[in-house]
Design a protein around this nucleic acid. Structure first.
Lengths: 204, 204, 204, 204
DNA sequence: TATGAATGAGGTTTCATTCAT
DNA sequence: CATGAATGAAACCTCATTCAT
């Protein structure tokens, strides 16, 4: 157990150092030496824990996705009403760029590569599909409870995540000109109206 | 002038070859030799027309932005009604991923780098700001014509482009699971409803 | 003594694992980790039994030479007649490539290194000299018994081993085109004729 | 033509530098940097002329074989009598270790690798087969001229080259103890006797 | 202008060896 | 004795950039 723990801890350590390097220098300008230095280890030992750089980078994005997934889900599961879940879910998504900007930087660094790396593309696709799936479930619950009509809920998961992603990217590129929060809330309002959920207080 | 023409033609030639390389191999795995081979010229001559690789890459994204801008604007200017302009604009945006997928691949390749490259980030920010500016103008026209209320038009440009960008990215990553067209049209409908513009035929 | 036995047993274990690695992967492509894995031990412990890789490799070739020597000598010593000894000796030599091909692979892997490694070269030289010495002794016995003339026996040991080595190498490189057995037997016949020893039954 | 010449000249230059490195340091202990230093060029340019180290090393042995082949054949073709050709051929072979010792060192360095490198093994096999083929031709001429009986000439090419190779190796390993010349001449004598070719002056 | 050979720094990866446990 | 994580030097190879032609 101790051994296994050490190994996982080391891998974690390297993965986090790599993430920091990506944020600081970018995927393209980051060498294994940079990672080793950032993690305060020798270059050689990285290959004890990861097959090669490609393997390491895949683990990094997997970990980032896992964490982001958890972060988005965190406070949602405690809620019971589908509408509340939906609201909270979108709020969480919209909060990502500001609360976890590093995730966005890392994500953007990988998106460019994904088109040329089938395994990576599959990982990214799965990540988004997973998240959309949860939204679908909330919506389905609502449908079952007679809150929404089935034809209303189509496109909503994709639209919701597109807005989250798009606003995040635009805000990252130009934080001063983009009010991601305001735009996000407007979108949320539209969505709820679309679902026939009247909001008495549309944001104080 | 003949010389100048030749020079511009050469630059164009190299820029297009570079774009193709980015699409085929990715920004990270593309060498100056690859570009030269793709353009059927020698490596050395590239340095007559571009200061260095970084310079070339900046020209590439500038050119891509310029073309994309023109493409988005293309049929909009012929219209007179702000609402029509708005509709057409969003339609054009939503068409980009499918009609010009290479642009999206190129864009994604640069977005990751932008955070570590102030000049590039500025170019990207300016590109988005420019586009949003046009939407703002249509909206402003509408306000002036008494079609929209001023408080209604806030966030719309950012939201519109976020959806376009987000849907494009998600569709690129997972074309089979994402119905970018359908989601885009739903969004367009919401926006028009929000502006109080009734659509008699919601989707021909 | 128990400890000493264990030690020798361990060394033997490592040496044999190393031999197998040389045969499987080649001297150049074989790492200490490979050896440890093959021997089912850790890399570290090898350094308890051998000073370093070079030391280990020297022990390996020494062991191989010792075994090969024993194999060649095995059935010779039971014989009494010099001629019989000579025949049997050559037969044994010629049998090595087929009966113990691994020895040949190992030997070839070391021969290339020997020119750049005086100690290794000395070991190889000694191995061959030793073997030739035995042949010389048989011949000397024959001379003393009046069977051969002294001037006849010069060059015979070297020639005999050259043929054995050369045929082995050529056969290893191209087993399908080289009939090492047939050629070897012809050579044996020549040698015996040279020594004036008529063979009544030239091999059934 | 000039360009092609330059390229071949460069390749030759690198191949010869590599040969020297092999002779000086050994195949295993020779780096691309060593080769570059020996050839007075940069490391990078080697990859302009050779795909990689493996490719270079294959070209080196091919060149070595080609030169050795030419050297062995050199004075043989001028002769007309099969017996003379045979004699001269063996003399040439026996002279290789002393006249071109580097070839032997290079050859030995490759023989060890050959068993783990099918392409290399094929090259080596072809080299020996080629040379044996010439001897077969001389012998065949002799048979056709009624000088030798067909059954006499079997095994002779293989035996002849085995002696050449074996004596060369043994002499390299222990020049002081091995009289390669004397042994070689004895073998030649046996062979001629076997073919029924009386030598009036058996070497002064 | 145009070529492509040449450079050399720097990238990824391997590996003999050591050492805390 | 035994382990295997850790080190860091050095290997192979790539590539942006320069420059003689």
């Amino acid at each position: 157990m101790a051994k296994s723990d050490t190994k996982e801890w080391r891998q974690e350590q390297v993965i986090e150092a790599t993430s920091r390097c990506i944020v600081e220098k970018g995927l393209a300008d980051m060498s294994m030496k940079d990672i080793a230095r950032e993690a305060n280890i020798s270059t050689g030992i990285i290959y004890h824990y990861f097959k090669n750089k490609e393997d390491l980078l895949l683990q990094v994005i997997k970990k980032a996705f896992q964490k982001s997934h958890e972060q988005v889900m965190e406070t949602v599961e405690t809620l019971s009403s589908p509408v509340e879940k939906l609201e909270r879910h979108l709020e969480n998504i919209l909060a990502v760029p500001k609360e976890n900007p590093d995730f966005f930087v890392v994500l953007l660094n990988y998106l460019g590569e994904a088109k040329h790396h089938p395994e990576l593309q599959a990982i990214v696709a799965k990540f988004f599909r997973n998240l959309r799936f949860y939204v679908e479930q909330y919506l389905q619950e609502g449908v079952e409870q007679g809150l929404f009509a089935p034809e209303q809920v189509r496109h909503l998961p994709a639209l919701l995540y597109s807005v989250g992603l798009g606003l995040g990217v635009m805000w990252m590129m130009d934080p001063e000109s983009v009010d991601a929060n305001g735009a996000g809330k407007l979108f949320l309002q539209w969505m709820l109206e679309h679902l026939g959920v009247g909001r008495t207080e549309p944001d104080a």
